[in-house]
């Protein structure tokens, strides 16, 4: 569940922590990160203008296609970079930001994957004269899968926006109660995130030599935040009732799955099938080697 992974040990100097609190390294930075993703998602490019359903379906198909490869596949996965590359280019998404965000999620795949070279030592293939074990091949495969699936999921939000994804989910049959509270969660994430940042900052300013960073103080901080949250939820609910809330969130404008959306979806699905069936990488490599030899 690690959302904020920066270790904040008790050995830091108060002054340094003070500085950190007010620079990008503070816990609040990740909330700003969401905000930045949210800002990117409201750009107006040809990818952003597509129907959210087209993008959601394509992304899911892409991830399933990538995951469906055999555990030792490395080269077969390489051509799949074309999907994130095209989306980054057409959707005008900053690459460095995307990769930094993707790396934050790496630890678990890395943790499990790194055992493969230890347990699977049988030599699987030779590149030139260098023997490569099955473990390293499958580790490479896992890291490649990780990069591809994570960037494609981030790109979905970066080009569709959270509301768009929610609308697509609802149109594709997700329960209304689920979608409605998903929208609520997203809206209040920013407000409560700010509040948590203020609490953390206040605690940091009063903390010396790691005292007060413990579990007890956290308990009362989180409890206070929860009490405020509950009051806020009640006020919100009453305000919504006054405005005629009946359990449904209405979206302005209607979705239209146009011919362009259909072409987009069919084109990608077709390409995924082609890349899944044919190892383009090997073909390209063999042709070039053939010409060179």
């Amino acid at each position: 569940m690690a959302l904020y992974r920066a270790g904040r040990g008790s050995d830091r100097l108060p002054a340094r922590r003070f500085l950190e609190t007010f620079t990008v390294a503070s816990p609040g930075a990740s909330a700003l990160d969401i905000r930045y993703l949210d800002i990117i998602s409201s750009r107006d490019t040809s990818i952003h203008r597509l129907d959210p359903r087209a993008k959601l379906l394509t992304t899911l198909a892409y991830i399933v296609a990538v995951a469906s490869f055999d555990k030792y596949t490395v080269t077969g996965l390489v051509p799949f970079v074309i999907y994130p590359v095209v989306l980054i280019a057409l959707g005008d998404v900053p690459v460095a930001y995307l990769l930094r965000k993707a790396m934050l999620a790496a630890p678990f795949a890395l943790f499990v994957g790194i055992f493969n070279p230890l347990f699977d030592r049988e030599v699987l293939l030779h590149v030139g004269s260098v023997p490569i074990s099955g473990g390293w091949a499958s580790f490479l495969s896992i890291m490649l899968r990780f990069t591809l699936t994570v960037t494609s999921a981030l790109l979905l939000v970066a080009t569709t926006g959270f509301n768009g994804v929610c609308v697509a989910l609802e149109k594709l049959g997700a329960p209304k109660a689920f979608v409605v509270q998903l929208l609520f969660l997203y809206r209040y994430l920013f407000v409560l995130g700010d509040e948590a940042t203020r609490l953390t900052r206040a605690r940091s300013l009063r903390t010396f030599d790691g005292r007060g960073m413990g579990i007890r103080v956290f308990g009362s901080l989180a409890g206070q935040l929860l009490l405020r949250t509950l009051d806020r939820a009640r006020r919100i609910y009453l305000a919504m009732l006054c405005r005629g809330f009946d359990g449904e969130v209405r979206q302005a404008g209607s979705l239209r799955f146009s011919k362009g959306d259909l072409v987009y979806t069919v084109w990608w699905l077709g390409l995924f099938i082609l890349l899944r069936v044919y190892d383009i990488t090997h073909l390209a490599g063999s042709v070039v080697m053939g010409l060179a030899g």
């Binding site: 409605v180 929208l183 609520f184 969660l185 809206r187 940042t197 413990g214 935040l225 949250t229 939820a233």
Partner: peptide
């Protein structure tokens, strides 16, 4: 429903507060 959404946001923001 709104309570669920807001509490979900609460869990997120509580995750932002680390403790040793």
């Amino acid at each position: 429903v709104p309570l669920m959404g807001v509490l979900g946001a609460f869990v997120f923001s509580a995750q932002m507060i680390n403790f040793t």
